[in-house]
């Protein structure tokens, strides 16, 4: 066996490698060019003659058809607004939570799926996963989605298939009212939108007035813990998920004239340990129900039976959707429920 390398070996190897690279670069460029050609050549749906330019909740400016008759609604909270505005007949596809449960847990009916007249065949999105094939099969003119939709899907739908996507994800309670107005103008439903907006403004105004009256009367606001998910004692990290700063849960609590024990957390959705809740001694505990969660689940959390609010019977369940879904129901049902709980007897 010879151990002396022939002098031509490395040179031949290198030149072949460069040759291969050159060939493959050319091949890659050719394929990319071909792909681009096909992508450009494809026929996008022609834009409607009647379009309007709107800025959505994440600051995107989108050209959308006015009063579209075929709309995909990929969020239970947007579906709530569409239903309340009498626009159900425009909806041809929905997210699977809306189709299966009428939202994560029904807002205002035990049979909300029937109320919304939805079927599982209309479901095109599970969580952030969009089934593009099924969406295309119903030929929507517009997609209304929350920020749960993948940014890549938004790009694909709007760029590849030419279907405009409007993101409706309000970050404040007043943002919910603005989105209702936006839908009203988009669908030529200004009358019903005005009525709904007036109801929402009234709900927010009443809550503000109650807070003002309580402050004027020197009545202290109660301290509360609002939790939407427990982690059982004995788990590696037991506790209660709660609302921190900048969340709808905290905004609702403040508007309902109460003080959240987790309002100053560093996280938007902190997990509170049992000892932290014991130390804060909230006067009320509100636990989110629905979607498979109930009192027995929370009762398995750390120190539950030791909490003063539990011992005094001030631990009350409330539909989680009232606290987490940014839609009209949050203001029309969630806010009055919290006010009645924290301030019984105070007229709203």
């Amino acid at each position: 066996m010879s151990l002396n390398p022939p002098s031509t070996g490395p040179a031949r190897s290198i030149s072949f490698a460069w040759f291969a690279v050159a060939v493959l670069v050319a091949a890659g460029a050719a394929v990319a060019a071909t792909a681009a050609y096909f992508e450009i050549r494809q026929n996008h749906p022609s834009a409607s003659a009647t379009t309007m330019s709107l800025t959505d909740d994440v600051g995107r400016t989108v050209n959308v058809p006015v009063n579209p008759s075929r709309v995909a609604v990929l969020s239970p909270s947007i579906m709530d607004s569409m239903y309340r505005l009498g626009l159900r007949s425009h909806v041809v596809a929905v997210d699977c939570y809306s189709a299966a449960f009428g939202g994560l847990s029904a807002d205002y009916s035990s049979d909300q799926v029937s109320l919304w007249n939805l079927s599982s065949s209309m479901c095109v999105q599970v969580g952030p996963t969009l089934n593009v094939e099924q969406l295309l099969a119903v030929s929507p003119q517009l997609v209304l989605a929350s920020t749960i939709i993948s940014v890549a899907d938004v790009e694909e739908i709007s760029t590849t298939y030419g279907i405009p996507v409007l993101i409706l994800q309000p970050t404040t309670l007043s943002g919910i009212v603005l989105d209702v107005d936006l839908l009203g103008s988009l669908f030529h439903a200004s009358a019903s939108a005005s009525l709904l907006s007036a109801d929402l403004a009234l709900g927010l105004g009443n809550a503000t007035r109650v807070a003002q009256n309580l402050t004027n009367a020197g009545t202290p606001f109660p301290t509360v813990m609002v939790t939407y998910s427990p982690v059982a004692a004995g788990s590696p990290s037991p506790g209660y998920y709660s609302f921190g700063p900048g969340t709808f849960g905290t905004s609702l609590i403040e508007l309902a004239s109460a003080t959240s024990i987790s309002a100053n957390s560093t996280l938007p959705y902190p997990e509170l340990s049992g000892s932290a809740v014991l130390a804060a001694r909230p006067q009320f505990i509100v636990y989110g129900t629905g979607f498979g969660l109930g009192l027995p689940d929370y009762a398995q959390g750390p120190d539950w039976s030791s909490f003063a609010a539990v011992q005094s019977g001030r631990a009350i369940g409330l539909n989680s959707n009232f606290l987490t879904e940014p839609d009209p129901t949050m203001i029309l049902d969630g806010l009055p429920a919290l006010l009645a709980l924290f301030h019984p007897g105070v007229p709203v």
Partner: peptide
Amino acid sequence: LQVSFWLLGGVGGATWNRDGVAFGGILI
């Protein structure tokens, strides 16, 4: 939630342009 799904992987976001870029890079 989105990152969790991303961590499970998927090829659903494919377009011809993306395939073209991936083809060139991976082949070389």
